[in-house]
Amino acid sequence: MAKARKIVKSVTIVADKCNGCRACEVICSAFHAAPRYSSNNPARSRIRIVREPLRDIYLPVYAGEYTQSECTGRDKYIIDGKEYSECDFCRASCPSRDLFKEPDSGLPLKCDMCEDTPPLAKPKCVEWCLNDALIYEEREEEVDVEEVRLGDVEIGIESLIDKYGLQQVLDTVARRVKP
C-alpha cells in the first residue's frame, strides 16, 4: 500500500490541571466570530468544560462530528469515585443535548484547531490556558494511503465474498434485484 507523510494535530487534555475558568470557551468563541474577535459567546464555543464544581468534575471536551441520532444505551463511568456519563466525554453534536450547536440556528459546531492563514503556532484555547490543562502536539506520521476508502456497505459485501465466494454473492444480488 502507498505511504504518505501527514501532520497529525492533537491536544492532550490534562483534566486534573483544569481550574474551571473557561478562558478556552471565551477565546474559542471570539476567534470564530466574524469579523474575528469582534464578539464572544461561550455558548458558541467549540470547546466546552463539562463542569460540576461540587462533584469536582472538570472536563474540557472538543466539538467533533455531527450525528443525526443519539446513542441508544448510555453507559456510566466511575473514575476516582466520580460518576461520569458517557456523554461527558463525547465530542458529538447530538440531538440529545445543547452542546456544540449554534445557540440561534442549532447548526452543529466542530473544532477546526483554529485553522488560519498564516497558521497559528497552536490553537487559541491552548494558548489561553495558562494552567497547562491543554497541551498541543503536532507530529508527522507516515500513513497508509488507501486507494479506495471502503464504505460500510462495501465492507459488508467484502465479508460476504470472503465467506461465500464472488459468484454466489453476484447470483444472490441478481436474484434480489427486482426488474
Binding site: N19, G20, C21, A23
Partner: peptide
C-alpha cells in the same frame, strides 16, 4: 482541598473546592 479553582476567564487559582 480537592482542587484549586478560579473565577471566570482567569488563570489564577485563588479558590478551592473543600470537602
Amino acid at each position: 482541598r480537592t482542587r484549586l479553582i478560579s473565577c471566570y476567564n482567569c488563570p489564577m487559582k485563588c479558590g478551592a473546592t473543600i470537602s
